[in-house]
Amino acid sequence: MPNSPSLLVAGQHAPDFTLRSTADQSVSLSELRGRPVVLVFYPADWSPVCSDQVSLYNELLSEFHTYGAQFLGISVDGVWCHAAFAGDRKLHFPLLADFEPKGAVARRYGVYEESDGVCQRALFVINADGVVRWRYVSPIGVNPGAEGILDALDKLSREPGQSL
């Protein structure tokens, strides 16, 4: 078992990745340079806390968009599971499948929960240059809400060179 890297901290470059968002589409973090990215790792589609959490973010997409931010969810579920979950909850943002090799991206961000084989409940706000500006890991059973993300985006929008 390779050692998982430690949790990324603010100021570090966010490791690039390419993950499937649907059976025939992929998203690369590097393609999103030039705008902030909100990256939300969560344990599982369909679980009660995750469902509340993603439903809340779904209601806030227009708010995130006012910062020009792209919002991405990531779990170890596969694309078809994501498709069913997104359809059922009417989600309007991509869910990425950290499915094969399982949890590889979560490991690189230091947010893989080895004992349960799932992503931790972790939030990252990445600036337009691909640098982590804020991150938060919530206890796995607690929905972290959105206040931290919005505060981080507020701060980001005041950084030189990050204006929209």
């Binding site: 509340d52 959490q53 439903s55 809340l56 209601e59 806030l60 708010e63 929905n143 972290p144 809400g145 959105a146 206040e147 919005l150």
Partner: peptide, 12 residues
């Protein structure tokens, strides 16, 4: 109301 709630940490 909604936005104030989000900013206050309403998570569901």
């Amino acid at each position: 109301d909604f936005t104030g709630g989000v900013r206050s940490g309403v998570n569901g």
